[in-house]
Amino acid sequence: EEERGRIAKDLHDSLGSLLATIKGHSSALEYEVKQLSNLQNYQKTNHLIDEACDEVRRISHNMMPQALISNGLVDALRDLTDNYASTSGWKITFDVVGMKHRLSENYELMIFRIVQELMANIARHAVAQQVLFQMIWKENNLHITVEDDGRGFKLDNGKESGLGMRSIRSRVAYLNGEVEIDSVPGEGTTVSINIPIKNESNGHRT
């Protein structure tokens, strides 16, 4: 995670600044040479520069989301799910209950990565129309449910075989949690996660 943070900062500070400088020079050149604005290749080049700037911001945000650092887990997850809903065309239901205060930085980041991977899996594979995200803090446990109405998949001896889900299981195990997956081809998928948080509350720096 430290390496993710370093790369995200480098992308934003170095490559992001370089692209912004290129964009500035391009605009200045257009001001000096009026004919450029009418050239199709010049317009395409400017459009590609804009796309590159947006992509750097997106990658940097995904690697180290500013909303998580500044506003906490709930706001970061709402931002994450809203972004996926807008780009993938889902109808998202976002429900959070009982979040009393922030968790430790490590737990917040790990939980964010778990949900991020779940959303990415739905976007890549599910062809879903509706997605439910629910997170409930109850009796020193955090219960997370992510459900979609997509095409589902066949479990192999009760387990999935994809790299994304193995990554999720690994992260949940690191937090001493448990994962249950229920999926039927053509009927969608439900992922239920339970994470103990008794020793992790009140651990965030303010």
Rank of each mutant, 00 (worst) to 15 (best):
K154F: 10
S88K: 07
V97P: 05
V127G: 11
I114M: 05
H61K: 13
D149Y: 04
D75C: 06
S104H: 07
L109P: 00
D95V: 06
R102G: 09
S161I: 14
Q134P: 03
V146N: 00
D54P: 03
T93I: 11
I69H: 12
M110C: 12
E105H: 03
W137G: 08
E55Q: 11
L109E: 10
T87E: 09
E108K: 03
R113T: 15
N83Y: 09
L132E: 06
S88Q: 15
G150L: 06
V56F: 07
N71E: 13
R151D: 03
M135N: 08
S167A: 14
G89W: 00
E117H: 07
I136Y: 03
I69D: 06
F133M: 00
H125T: 08
P65D: 06
F133Y: 10
G72Q: 02
F112E: 05
L80E: 05
D148M: 00
I136Q: 13
E108Y: 00
A123Y: 01
W90M: 02
Y84L: 04
I144L: 12
R166Q: 15
E55W: 08
L68E: 02
I114Q: 02
D54G: 09
K138N: 14
M119H: 02
L109G: 04
E105C: 01
H125S: 09
M135L: 14
M64R: 13
F112M: 09
F153I: 02
S70N: 14
R57M: 08
H101P: 04
F112K: 03
I144E: 09
F94N: 04
L80Y: 03
I136K: 11
R102C: 08
N157R: 15
L132C: 04
E117W: 04
L163F: 13
L163R: 12
R57F: 06
N121G: 06
A123H: 08
H143K: 08
N157D: 14
Q116L: 11
E117D: 13
A126F: 02
I114F: 08
K159S: 14
I122L: 03
V74C: 05
Q66V: 13
M110A: 13
K138Y: 12
K159Q: 13
D79I: 07
G89E: 05
S104D: 11
V146Q: 01
A120M: 10
N141G: 09
G158C: 06
M64Y: 14
V74M: 05
R78I: 04
G89I: 04
L103N: 02
L132G: 06
A123C: 07
E55K: 14
M165A: 01
Y107W: 10
T81S: 09
N140T: 05
G89P: 04
I144V: 12
V96G: 00
I114A: 01
D54Y: 10
G162T: 13
S161F: 12
V131G: 00
G152H: 11
E105N: 06
D149T: 04
K91A: 09
G158V: 05
V115Q: 03
D95H: 14
D79Q: 13
R124Y: 07
G152V: 06
L68T: 01
S86A: 15
D149P: 03
D54F: 10
S88M: 12
F153S: 07
A67N: 05
I92V: 12
D75V: 13
E105Y: 02
V96C: 11
I111E: 02
L142I: 08
N106V: 11
Q134I: 01
E139D: 14
I122V: 15
